[in-house]
Design a protein around this nucleic acid. Structure first.
Length: 389
DNA sequence: TCTGGGGTCCTAGGACCC
DNA sequence: TCTGGGGTCCTAGGACCC
């Protein structure tokens, strides 16, 4: 393992004064590595080189999630303060782990070895006093390395790096900074807080703090999602109303299922439309009555769609989004409440079947494809229980 | 690179209220 | 009647991330 250190080449640092020690762990080529483990015969490097997106798109999400969960468990053996921020990435707060692990640096080193040992996967990690710096450090440490940035040396570590390395600076902000003569992270700091604020508003403050290696937001990572959405791009652009409605219904089903899974009611439902020419629009609607029912979401989104589309331009992509969650619905009239509860129970039963046998086993009539000429002649395929194989 | 799907956060304007 | 200022909620869009 490559062990790089920023700062004095002395021994591993002490956490005696309880300086915050944030570790960012990032898996190396996660999807590809999992595939290799599962099927070593796969000439995956060649495939990846030829077609970098293919593996990701056709990937095995279940498989990746399994590995991700195993990693999460392993991380928890080091500290209870684990934030999985994506399927292959986590922050661990190692502050004050002196007694248990002999210091954050040693813990980080052991963690990287443990990941390899227990899952066969390799990862990289950055350790510092803040989330931003650790994130950038883990990136610098790749592959299979650990980079520690000593407390007090954060800004110095960041200064020579190109601005694009900073998470939160993308393809729009990079040239904008460039037009101000700022190319390195150190340049952000040198430009000065006031001028940054004049130019970028609140984002200017954010930039300045990040350039010094400081976390600006509390990083209060919440387990609960703020929005749930599904979208799909058609194989061929379409203006076929039936196909559009069928698709919206399917998307509404997927979204509603996940709402019930989280025990959420959504107050706001939204539509996303992308036309042939790639122009994209969104429409939101806030309901009086929060919902988690497929049919309600579908009806509302369909309404939005009808108002937003004049039938002129063909459609490339449709999306259904819900947000503004509440944990319970408003008080309904007694009869209404009973109906809704019944319907919800039925849908939840359907959700359980779907989980067990796959989403396709249980579809409401609206979302199903129309029967093909073949199917109309022959007996219908059974879609309720189990698969046919 | 002719462009997939799931998210987060921010801004800005308008409606509405006091 | 015209005027002010502040606050909240809603909606649309955009930048960015993995």
């Amino acid at each position: 393992m490559n062990v790089n250190r920023m700062g004095p080449q002395s021994q591993a640092p002490s956490t005696r004064h309880l300086v915050r020690q944030i570790l960012h762990v990032d898996m190396d080529a996660f999807f590809v590595s999992v595939e290799e483990l599962e099927d070593p015969s796969l000439p995956i490097r060649t495939a990846k080189r030829l077609c970098p997106q293919a593996i990701f798109l056709r990937g095995h999400y279940e498989r990746y999630r399994d590995y991700s969960e195993r990693l999460g468990k392993l991380f928890h053996e080091f500290t209870p303060a684990v934030e999985m921020v994506s399927i292959d990435e986590a922050y661990l707060d190692l502050t004050g782990c002196e007694r248990l692990h002999g210091g954050a640096f040693r813990a980080a080193d052991r963690l990287i070895r443990a990941v390899k040992e227990h899952t066969g996967l390799s990862c990289s990690a950055g350790l510092s006093t803040s989330h931003v710096v650790s994130k950038i450090a883990s990136d610098q440490a790749k592959p299979h390395g650990l980079l520690y940035v000593f407390g007090g040396r954060e800004a110095e570590f960041l200064a020579p790096l190109p601005v694009r390395r900073m998470p939160g600076i993308g393809k729009v902000t990079e040239p904008e900074l460039g037009s101000l003569g700022i190319f390195k992270i150190g340049g952000i700091r040198a430009y000065g807080l006031e001028r940054l604020k004049n130019h970028f508003g609140k984002y200017g403050e954010w930039l300045h703090a990040k350039a010094l290696g400081k976390d600006i937001e509390a990083y209060a990572y919440s387990e609960e999602p703020k929005s749930i959405s599904h979208e799909t791009t058609f194989d061929a652009d379409t203006d076929d109303v039936e196909e559009i409605e069928r698709t919206l219904f399917s998307l509404a089903e997927l979204v509603a299922m996940r709402l019930r899974d989280h025990a959420f009611f959504a107050r706001t439902v939204g539509l996303k439309l992308r036309f042939v020419d790639f122009t994209t629009l969104t429409r939101d609607l806030t309901l009086e009555e929060p919902t988690r029912l497929d049919s309600v979401i579908f009806e509302q989104v369909l309404g939005l769609f009808k108002r937003a589309w004049n039938g002129q331009r063909k459609i490339r992509l449709l999306g259904v989004r819900t947000s503004n969650f509440e944990s319970s619905s408003f008080q309904l009239g007694l009869i209404e409440a009973e109906k809704t509860a019944k319907l919800t129970r039925a849908l939840e039963a359907a959700d359980r079947l779907r989980k067990r046998y796959g989403f396709e086993t249980m579809r409401l009539a609206r979302g199903l494809d129309p029967p093909s000429a073949e199917a109309r002649k022959s007996p219908p395929r059974r879609r309720f229980f189990g698969r046919e194989d």
